[in-house]
Amino acid sequence: MVGIVIVSHSEQIAEGIKTLAGQMAGANQKIIAAGGMTDGSIGTDAIRISEAVAAADSGDGVLVLVDLGSAIISTETAFELIEPEVAARVVIADAPIVEGAISAAVQASIGATLAEVKAAAEMAKAMQKL
């Protein structure tokens, strides 16, 4: 099953999205929050993200949802810190973090491939709310 990692500058945002997406996808879906810094301040931590990716991976790949700015740079740095074998099956979704995470988690929970999960997340970009 494809794992999901949520990277936000805020620990609470990442945890909140994890809870929200987890409610839709069910308890078996791996969703790991990697928000904020270990001292509780706002920011992104490449080491925390690399640990989250390793924890989310069960061999079928990991999709990472990011908020903005340094979240992307830190995530790409994290890819350099993990095993190359795992890094080869981890991708960042070009998607809104909340809607993308929910779509991705639901897809992943029904056993979709990494490419399908990524596509589901990225479709959320075009989602009309009104």
């Binding site: 500058h9 270990t38 920011g43 931590d45 490449a46 700015g69 340094s70 790409e76």
Partner: peptide, 14 residues
């Protein structure tokens, strides 16, 4: 990497 927080963390860290 794990303490700076902003973009300068991963940039200087790398």
């Amino acid at each position: 990497l794990s303490t700076v927080g902003g973009a300068s963390g991963p940039l200087y860290g790398t």
